[in-house]
Design a protein around this nucleic acid. Structure first.
Length: 289
DNA sequence: ATCCAGGCTCCTG
DNA sequence: CAGGAGCATGGA
């Protein structure tokens, strides 16, 4: 019923910081996270199951349970969520602000939403509204269109697959407080012929190029997918309001930085601009600035 | 009430 | 390319 697998992440690995990020992050709706473990239901080849990751001496212990339990799939998911195999950033020469952040968060990897459809839906929901409210939207969407999985007396939610949303109408989503235009964006995404999984194999700029063809997906959303969906270590959603704020503050501008200013400043972080963006989001989220 | 929040589209200079 | 109007939503 339960199978387990130990994994030693490439060191250093700060699972505590990762779990702190996930526990605080509004995008963490389908997951169950506490100070030393992570759980989430997945749709496996052989059926639904729950994957669990918890702290072990030299990294992580991964286990799966449920009718469709598949350790390989569960392990693959965990590896992606926690970017276990990712290289860690080098502090940029000539940017003491970012160098200090990288030292402070040493071992924190980019936390990802491995399902690109879910990551994009989350990004669309989050466009131009406060993220606490966006989290509520994600929750009601899951509860209306996803599937519950009951296991050991607990209910886990499976995120709705694209097929479930191809015929959704703005009128249906409006009572869920999802705006008319976002409903249309989500439906267009669900209907799109674009092979989201295949985007993983393309370089950053080509992923953006293809995604912005879709209505409702602009540069920010595409870059968000690169960073939070694929864990790309050099992708930066420079237009992000939160980033513009904290960059303005940390770099002494006394106002929000413009998107162009963020992009220009972040050139010094290359090829680790993804880490730069993620670490600044982490700082914002933890009020650590 | 007014401004803002992890934008996008479409339109001007 | 930069900037802005209009859109849509709830929260502070």
């Amino acid at each position: 019923m339960t199978t387990t697998h130990h994994v030693a992440a490439t060191a250093p690995f700060r699972l505590d910081l990762a779990l702190r990020y996930l526990a605080t992050s509004p995008s963490t709706v389908a997951e169950v996270v506490d100070e030393r473990s992570y759980e989430r239901a997945l749709r496996g080849r052989r059926g639904p199951f729950v994957v669990r990751a918890e702290a072990a001496e030299d990294g992580l212990r991964v286990s799966v349970r449920g009718s469709g339990a598949d350790l390989e799939e569960g392990f693959d998911w965990i590896q992606r969520v926690f970017s276990l195999q990712a290289p860690l950033p080098e502090p940029p020469v000539g940017d003491p602000v970012m160098a200090e952040r990288i030292a402070r968060y040493l071992g924190l990897r980019i936390l990802t939403i491995p399902d690109p459809f879910e990551a994009l839906v989350w990004a669309i929901l989050g466009q131009q509204i406060n993220i606490a409210f966006a989290a509520r939207l994600k929750r009601v969407l899951i509860e209306a269109y996803g599937d519950p999985l009951e296991l050991d007396g607990r209910v886990y939610w499976l995120f709705p697959p694209a097929e479930r949303l191809v015929d959704v109408t703005p009128e249906e989503l409006r009572p869920l407080q999802i705006s008319r235009q976002k409903a249309i964006y989500i439906r267009e995404l669900a209907r799109s012929e674009l092979d989201l999984a295949a985007l993983r194999r393309l370089p950053d700029d080509e992923v953006v190029e293809r995604l912005v063809e879709l209505k409702g997906i602009g540069r920010w959303t595409a870059e968000y997918l690169l960073l939070r969906g694929f864990g790309r270590t050099d992708a930066i959603p420079a237009g992000d309001m939160g980033l513009r704020q904290i960059v303005g503050r940390l770099y002494g501008l006394d106002r929000n930085a413009s998107e162009a200013e963020v992009r220009s400043l972040a050139e010094a972080w290359a090829p680790w601009r993804g880490y730069g963006a993620f670490y600044l989001w982490f700082a914002l989220q933890q009020r650590d600035f």
